[in-house]
Nucleic acid binder design. Structure first.
Lengths: 200, 200
DNA sequence: TGAAGAAAAGCACGATCGGTCGTAGCATCG
DNA sequence: CGATGCTACGACCGATCGTGCTTTTCTTCA
């Protein structure tokens, strides 16, 4: 079997550790020192793979995005177009939030909140780009639901995406701040209400 | 004229600077060094007024809360009970968000997002307590609207508060992440939709 | 006015941060 | 096999952090 070059294997391992670390202390708390310790490598050894902290953050973020696509987006898209697909996206996202390590929850939403007030830079740009993609995806699903005749013809897909993300974020935030899962119920109720008002 | 003791005046001045600073760099970015520079006082001089950074953060947070009560809550409560009062709260809050210095916006919501994943401590507890008070206030307003016959009798006030806060937070977040005010429109639409479904 | 006490300054500490540098060892490939 | 180049190391840097300790300066009030 064609084993990957050692450097690639090391890097992949380090990146997995970085993702776990970012999941528990955030991307800003993802320091070279702690990551080096956790990964069993020297701090300076990390610089062979990541040219700066920002570089490390971005690569870790991309790994998280790939995981989100695998675990949430792809399963949703396998559902049939329209409301079922949207429901599945919501369900998957709720699970994804709950599967995230305490106390951070959804690492992508965490990043969005963490960098929304950061000075401009590559990491912030990556976060904004990710958000834009998500917004676009939800808009597309909403448009499909309109075309399928399930959503009201006068529905603004962008407005739907804004509110959909709002519900997801509200759950994420309540879970982090109050440290209970009881708000999943409220988020689901809000989502159902949102769906109901979108139906004809 | 009975002038306040000088120390009190100094402390009040420093606290105002601290609030401005926290508004632009967050409570975690509120460091003794930068605050000392901004307030024209020495770093160690600050210790005469604040026994620790946490103490400084908490006192600054309380000042912000007082301002929120003055500028948003009190005007709302002067409106008549029920839907008008709730509308006024929402309007005032939107203005409050927009009046906040770029890029942070509402400093209280900022703090909620900043400390929701922080380790337990006095500051986090203060933030959680503030959130609880806000949630309780909104619940009360919703109950009043039910009693006034404006909201559906079957409405769950806690659910309403959850969604109300969700809309406010969604606007706050979108404004910070995307750095435009165009989402005020979306937030308002979401709020109107929320109100509409609460009406009988 | 002068004594007592508080406010502020000055200085230094240990820790942690992101990051650099020279070097040694080991994997890779001709 | 042997040369080359990447990987990883340890030491170290300057900056910044929160927070002591000591000393000076200024307020306050009898």
């Amino acid at each position: 079997m064609a084993t990957l070059p050692k450097s690639e294997r090391t890097k992949a391992r380090v990146l997995r550790e970085a993702l776990a670390l970012a999941g528990s202390v955030g991307f800003s708390g993802l320091t070279f020192g702690t990551l080096a310790e956790q990964a069993g490598i020297s701090k300076s050894g990390l610089f062979a793979h990541f040219e700066s902290k920002e570089d490390l953050q971005i690569q870790t973020l991309h790994l998280a995005e790939d995981m989100f696509v695998d675990r949430v987006l792809r399963p949703a898209v396998q559902e049939e177009r329209g409301a079922p697909r949207i429901r599945r996206l919501f369900d998957g996202w709720m699970d994804w939030i709950q599967s995230g390590a305490e106390p951070r929850g959804d690492i992508l939403t965490s990043a969005a909140f963490e960098f929304d007030d950061a000075p401009d830079g590559p990491m912030r740009a990556a976060v904004v780009a990710g958000h834009g993609k998500m917004q676009g995806t939800i808009e597309r699903l909403a448009r499909q639901a309109v075309e399928a005749g399930q959503f009201n013809r006068k529905l603004d897909p962008a407005q739907f995406a804004f509110e959909f993300l709002g519900v997801v974020h509200a759950h994420h935030h309540a879970r982090r701040l109050l440290r209970t899962d009881q708000h999943a119920r409220r988020a689901r109720a809000a989502f159902e209400r949102l769906l109901a008002t979108c139906m004809a």
